[in-house]
Design a protein around this nucleic acid. Structure first.
Length: 266
DNA sequence: TCCTATGTTGTATG
DNA sequence: ACATACAACATAGG
């Protein structure tokens, strides 16, 4: 499920362990989510206290005492869960941190996610190199224009999925943004006029803000006025025009758009 | 059986 | 070097 706002919600799930000390670490060293890192390093978490966490784009960072930083990327099917202190790992649970009053569990059936542990006084580069949020002042109209120029031949849908350019945007958010901006997902990124760039900029920031304010707080699906609840249903209709939604693979991913609002072809 | 899946990455190609 | 396209990763569910 995880894009920007789902990641933010799932980060906060582990807040249940804030201020508590790790008693036990249970992990499966062969699980691919560790990506070949030496999992013996996780023993250092025993005795460490969970001091805080942050999310940026699709990444989470959990800070523990002892300068330990646990990075979590959920991939396609990763999820952070909590359970009682006697929680035992189920088949797809790859990491269980047993704290004083709660267990923090990372589960991931497909194992496209990633866990990494960093120890040291400075933050790891995979965290510090995440581009600034799309909702921040650093994401300017000029920056968007430069990105669209660099990826000028790629379909808008593919460009929006580039995490270096649009950190946190995933398949459903990209479709939502393009639908709101009334832009066909196959339009080459370099072909937008000034007004279209302005619409893209506005809707990108709007969708990020609204998703964080709703999904980011409750994980509930967005309202029926969004494309989101209609996009996967067979026979789904555009909430703005009522026309049948169309689906096709664009930019390597299944893409949904409203032909009346966004055009039949780019 | 066959197809799909809210993600990234390595590799090939231009 | 850079941009683009696509298979591969591993599993569950329709």
């Amino acid at each position: 499920m995880p894009e920007l706002a789902e990641v933010e919600f799932l980060r906060k799930r582990w807040n249940a362990g804030l201020g508590q000390t790790v008693r036990h670490v249970t992990l499966n060293p062969r699980a691919k989510v560790f990506r070949g890192e030496d999992t013996r390093a996780y023993a250092a978490l025993v005795g460490a206290r969970l001091d805080g966490s942050e999310a940026a784009a699709k990444q989470m960072l959990f800070r523990f005492s002892g300068a330990l930083h646990l990075g979590v990327h959920l991939g396609m099917t990763g999820e952070t869960c909590i359970g009682p202190v006697d929680t035992l790992p189920r088949p797809h649970d790859h990491l269980v941190l047993t704290l004083e009053r709660v267990a923090l569990v990372y589960t991931d059936p497909r194992m496209f996610g990633r866990l990494r542990l960093h120890q040291g006084p400075t933050l790891p580069s995979w965290w510090t190199e995440i581009p600034p949020p799309l909702t921040s002042d650093a994401f300017t109209r000029a920056r968007l224009a430069a990105i669209l120029e660099r990826r000028s031949r790629a379909p808008l849908k593919a460009a929006l999925l580039d995490q270096d350019a649009f950190p946190g945007i995933g398949n459903w958010m990209a479709d939502e943004v393009l639908w709101r901006a009334a832009l066909h997902p196959a339009t080459p990124a370099g072909r937008l006029d000034t007004a279209q760039q302005a619409a893209l900029y506005r809707e990108l920031r709007w969708v990020c803000r609204q998703a964080l304010a709703t999904i980011g707080e409750t994980l509930e699906d967005p309202p029926k006025t969004w494309l989101f609840p209609h996009r996967w249903r067979e026979g789904g209709r555009c909430p703005k025009t009522g026309c049948l939604l169309r689906r096709a693979e664009i930019g390597g991913r299944t893409t949904c758009w409203s032909p009346e609002r966004q055009g039949d072809t780019p």
